[in-house]
Amino acid sequence: MTALGERPAATARTGSTALDLVLRFRALGLVLALAALVAATTAVNARFLSAQSLRDLLFAAAITVLLATGMTVVVLTRGIDLSVGSVLGLSAYLTGSLLSSVGVPVPLAILTGLAVGAACGTVNGAIVHFGRVPPLVATLGTLYVFRGVVYFVAGGSRINASDLPGAFLDFGSGTVLGVPYLFALAVAVLAVVAVFLSRYRSGRDLYALGSNPEAARLSGIPAGRRLMGAYVTCGALAGLGGVLYAARFGTVDASAGYGLELDIVAAVVVGGVAIFGGSGTVVGAGLGALLLAVINNALPVLSVSQFWQQAIVGALILAAIALDRLVGARTARALRRKAAADAD
């Protein structure tokens, strides 16, 4: 062997810390944007920071945070689930009618919502995995199918708050230490999923699948099982979202959750989850959902028109993607430099 080959093994460790910083910076950036927005709005109208107003904000954010968590799991695998709005609607209506007509206990209603969502997710996963249909197309199809089912079941009727048990509505409007139950539940789910994704083998498999599907196949990762798992999780969380929706609003008709899917995708993208899979965290997606909720609540206070609200959300999405590109290019360059330095 030559002199170079017998170089002693000295492990340098710089590149990863730089990358960590960037990733932490990403979450930090979201937090800073949130803080800046809240500060600016409060300056205009001090009541924006009142307990009541914050509670409203968390109520509004709970469902998006929950659904963004599920969506992240799917997006990490290079997928997308456009049917979440319809799944939410279906679950909300079915649990609502179970509660109002049959009078099942609340925990059973929650389980029903989860089961309905999981069933929808199974359909999505099966079409994507066994049918080899691109997720965008598959879930665009089920978006309409599931919504059609809601219309079929509901017809023109709707469920009113007066039909629902009081305990259920209390769960929807109650708070603990000023935090709505719904938001606490969403955050708890997010925490569980976050730990699963970062610390469990099957969670890491999802990143691997999104990062390099071919390599995943070569290394024997059970792609089918993992994909099904991702879509079932996303569906189940959308189903749970339906239960929260019914509990919070009390009134459910066939259009519940209509158009919600794009808000969720927006939250996930703004939260730094790569739309082509392989990188991102549910914490980021949760922060993204929170940021969008703050924007929606703050802009009316700042008397910004509806049109601008949408434009600002759009600009945020573009900014998030631009930032990804920039960070990606910079990290790649930094890694190359480091590799060159290591080779010396």
Partner: peptide, 15 residues
């Protein structure tokens, strides 16, 4: 293997 590689860096960008 007698090589110097940081186990904690992303695989992206390696030769």
């Amino acid at each position: 293997l007698g090589v110097a590689l940081d186990p904690d860096r992303p695989a992206k960008g390696l030769s």
